[in-house]
Structures are given as structure tokens and as C-alpha cells.
Simulated scan of single mutants.
Amino acid sequence: MALTTAVSTSGDTDKQIFIGKGTQEAWLTLALGNRHGLVTGATGTGKTVSLQVMAEGFARAGVPVFASDIKGDLSGIAEIGEGKEFILQRAKEMGLTFQPDQFSTVFWDVFGEQGHPVRATVSEMGPLLLARLLDLNDVQEGVLNVAFRVADENGLTLLDMKDLRSLLDAIVPKTVKKDEFDPLAEIRAAAMSFGNVSKATVGTIQRQLLVLENQGGEKFFGEPALELKDFIRTDRDGRGMVNIL
């Protein structure tokens, strides 16, 4: 069901967003919109509607909005709501003019099943965050840092988990016969210049990557990678895009 907003007769201004009305009208000054805020209240007191009103007000003012919507309460912002009798009556009692509206909305989904996929490349994730994600110890994290350093120095972009797996295999020391050609000799030598890389440690990291893959992690890594500017857009009418995760 699409939630709709009742706005005052004067509506939002270029400096303020109309939030609601109790004994008096409540406004949010746009110039102070970058402050932290907290909306509290018991179930059914209007917390979600208050947040939606603010999201609509910012979008109407040309400010892009990002909202984490676990329960799907804000999805109705993308469609024009229905002016039901009890809503119209309540608006009349408060001296407000009910005006249903809709806003340009982009839905995001980490798994890409119910919205645009949220992706990042392994290179952008970096060894520090990835080590925390894989729950690696200090030694294993050190080897992961070696892998990323070798990739950077050799111009190797790590897009997904397959790329990282291949690189980890490549930095493991290998005994090569005298007349045998090793196409990865430079990669192995570069890795060894940062210290010993044991096969056992690499194997442990590979198993942790397998656990992450089994949990759906491979859907997160890849291209196109999400950029901050993807959230900071306006539509053709100059309104801010509403991004819902």
C-alpha cells in the first residue's frame, strides 16, 4: 500500500519542509537538515510516516535521499497514493490540504533480486575490510595484504572472488625444474620479496573465501561497482532521487 502525505495549504517552501501539525505546525529548516535527528514513539504513533514526509520534502527540494528500509514501509513513495476517506477527513480536521504525490525511486538490493544490485570490486574492498569479513588472524591478514600489494604493483585489478582466488594461488611458492618455464615467476618473486607465503596459510584463506561464497558473497563482488554518485542524482524535474535499500 502506498503511503501518502497530507501537506499544509502553503506546502513546503524553498527554506522549510512541512513535517506535520499538532497544536501548532512543525517545520524542518533545510539549512539545518544536515544535523543528526532521532524520531521516537510507540507503535502506531507515526514514526515511519514522519520519516517519509522528511524524505519527500528533501526530494521535493532537490536533495537526493537514501533510506534503509528493512520492512518495505517506504516503497509506496514511488506511487501516487489513494486519498481514502479517513485520510481526507483527518486532513480537513487539521486544516490541511491533502495532496498525493509520487517520487522518482531507485530500489537497491545486495543480492540483486528485488532491486539494482549493490556491488563492489575486491580491489575496492581492500585487504583490511576483507580480512575482517573473512575473520582472518594476523598471519593470514598479512598474506592477504601481500596479495593486494602484488596486484597493485603489477597492475592487476581484482574484480571478483575468482580473481582473488587465482592471485592467491599464484603467490604460493612453487618448485620449478631448471628447464621448465613458469609464467607466474615474476608474481611469485614479487610476493616472496615481502616475506614467506606458506601454502597452508593461503589454503586457509581459500577456505574462508569458500564459506563467504556459500553465503552468497560472490553476488556482492563484481562490476559495475557502486559509486557514491549513484546515490546523488536528481530526476528530470530537478527533484532528488529517493534511494531505498
Rank of each mutant, 00 (worst) to 15 (best):
residue 2 A to N: 14
residue 4 T to N: 09
residue 5 T to S: 06
residue 9 T to I: 09
residue 10 S to Y: 09
residue 11 G to D: 15
residue 12 D to S: 12
residue 14 D to V: 09
residue 15 K to F: 05
residue 17 I to L: 09
residue 21 K to S: 05
residue 23 T to N: 04
residue 24 Q to K: 08
residue 27 W to F: 03
residue 32 L to H: 10
residue 33 G to P: 05
residue 34 N to E: 07
residue 36 H to E: 14
residue 38 L to P: 08
residue 39 V to L: 02
residue 41 G to F: 01
residue 41 G to S: 00
residue 43 T to Y: 02
residue 46 G to V: 01
residue 49 V to G: 07
residue 55 A to Q: 04
residue 57 G to E: 11
residue 57 G to L: 08
residue 58 F to S: 03
residue 60 R to Y: 13
residue 62 G to A: 13
residue 70 I to Q: 09
residue 71 K to C: 01
residue 74 L to E: 03
residue 77 I to T: 11
residue 77 I to L: 07
residue 78 A to G: 00
residue 79 E to M: 03
residue 79 E to N: 00
residue 80 I to V: 13
residue 83 G to M: 05
residue 85 E to Q: 01
residue 90 R to C: 07
residue 93 E to P: 04
residue 98 F to Q: 05
residue 100 P to D: 10
residue 102 Q to R: 13
residue 104 S to Y: 14
residue 105 T to G: 09
residue 111 F to R: 05
residue 112 G to H: 06
residue 112 G to W: 00
residue 112 G to M: 01
residue 114 Q to C: 11
residue 116 H to P: 07
residue 118 V to D: 07
residue 123 S to G: 12
residue 125 M to P: 09
residue 127 P to S: 11
residue 128 L to R: 10
residue 131 A to W: 00
residue 131 A to H: 01
residue 133 L to P: 02
residue 137 N to Q: 07
residue 138 D to I: 12
residue 138 D to A: 12
residue 139 V to S: 15
residue 145 N to R: 10
residue 146 V to L: 14
residue 147 A to Q: 10
residue 148 F to W: 07
residue 149 R to W: 12
residue 155 G to E: 12
residue 157 T to H: 09
residue 158 L to R: 05
residue 158 L to M: 10
residue 161 M to T: 10
residue 162 K to N: 12
residue 163 D to W: 06
residue 164 L to R: 01
residue 168 L to N: 15
residue 168 L to G: 12
residue 170 A to P: 08
residue 172 V to G: 15
residue 173 P to F: 11
residue 175 T to P: 04
residue 176 V to E: 14
residue 177 K to Q: 14
residue 178 K to E: 12
residue 185 A to I: 13
residue 192 M to Q: 13
residue 197 V to S: 13
residue 200 A to Y: 14
residue 202 V to F: 09
residue 203 G to M: 14
residue 208 Q to C: 10
residue 209 L to Y: 08
residue 209 L to P: 11
residue 211 V to H: 11
residue 211 V to P: 08
residue 212 L to M: 14
residue 213 E to F: 02
residue 222 G to Q: 06
residue 223 E to K: 01
residue 223 E to N: 03
residue 226 L to R: 01
residue 228 L to P: 13
residue 232 I to N: 13
residue 235 D to Q: 09
residue 235 D to R: 05
residue 235 D to M: 08
residue 236 R to E: 14
residue 238 G to F: 10
residue 238 G to K: 09
residue 241 M to P: 15
residue 244 I to N: 03
residue 245 L to Y: 08
